[in-house]
Amino acid sequence: MPSRRALSVLLAAVIGLFGLTATPAQAAPAFKAPYPCGQQWTYSHHSAEVRLALDFVRSDGGSTAGTPVLASASGTAYRYYQSGGAGNYVVVDHGGGWQTYYFHLAAFSISHGQGVSQGQQLGTTGSTGNSSGAHIHYEQLYNGVGQTIRINGVSLAPYPGSYYQKYLTSDNGCSGQSGKYWVDTFANAPGYASPTSTTQTGTLYAGTNYVFCKVWGREIRDGSGNYNHWWLRTDLDVGPANQYVSAYYLSRWGNDEARDNNGTVIPNC
């Protein structure tokens, strides 16, 4: 009877001969969705994508284009460009043979070879390269071989062949992971050095943004009776870091509320 070692060698040879994918020997990281907390996206798979990739577009009423693309797990991030295919894309090496890929970015938010934490912004969603519209093309690879995508340990298979059949709500970066709370803003928000200042220092663009904490300050009110006294500390898109914008600009909440996209109350500074 062949030895156990001989059987293992024979099995490996058969796997290599027929191009089969063996079960990964190194457990996968606890991957999370590649977009901010509380957002719902729909996903689909094209048969031409041989590495078991999924394409994601936003389905909760927010804009897909410009939404932050987040690291699914911690690792080392590398940025690349491919004009006829992936466009601007990032590869995160998680160690142990595991990598994730993020294609078609509008812009990068990291430097080449930078260490990143889970939930850290890698770039913004776009349509660069061979793409017909803004989306996140997302892959999980083990030793260079595409794997069925799992989020929070749950497989997303069987994959749908078109959007709006299956949906995924993100918990990446929720409740202050990495000290950040993700929020949606409905308009460009002026930034100030303090919650009582009236001298604008910059602008936070409309869309999905991170904030750190909140402070009670001067009232912002419109002609329709909407108002807010909370101010959110954040890094502006134009202007210095650690400035304040009014929670009035939050898309999802009402008067004198300051919650993230997941409904968590943003802590006091």
Rank of each mutant, 00 (worst) to 15 (best):
R4K: 09
R5S: 15
R5I: 12
S8H: 07
V9Y: 09
L10Y: 14
L11V: 14
A22E: 15
A25K: 14
A28H: 07
A28Y: 12
P29T: 02
A30T: 15
F31D: 05
P36F: 03
G38Y: 07
Q39M: 15
Q40S: 14
W41E: 04
T42D: 11
H46R: 13
S47H: 10
V50T: 15
V50S: 15
V50Y: 13
A53R: 11
S63F: 06
G66N: 11
T67I: 08
A73Y: 08
G75Y: 01
G75N: 04
Y78K: 12
R79V: 13
R79S: 08
Y80F: 15
D93V: 14
G97T: 06
F103Q: 10
A107D: 11
A107L: 04
F108R: 06
T125A: 00
T125D: 00
G133M: 08
E139V: 00
N143C: 00
V145C: 07
V145P: 01
G146D: 05
A157Y: 06
Y159N: 05
Y164F: 15
Y167K: 06
L168D: 12
S170P: 10
N172G: 00
G173D: 08
Q177R: 01
S178W: 02
S178C: 06
K180Q: 12
D184H: 15
T185M: 01
F186K: 09
G191A: 14
P195H: 08
T201A: 14
Y205G: 03
V211M: 02
F212M: 11
K214P: 11
Y227H: 13
W230L: 04
L232S: 10
D235R: 05
V238E: 11
N242H: 14
Q243D: 13
Y248D: 00
Y248P: 04
G254R: 05
N255T: 06
D260R: 05
N261A: 10
N262A: 15
T264V: 13
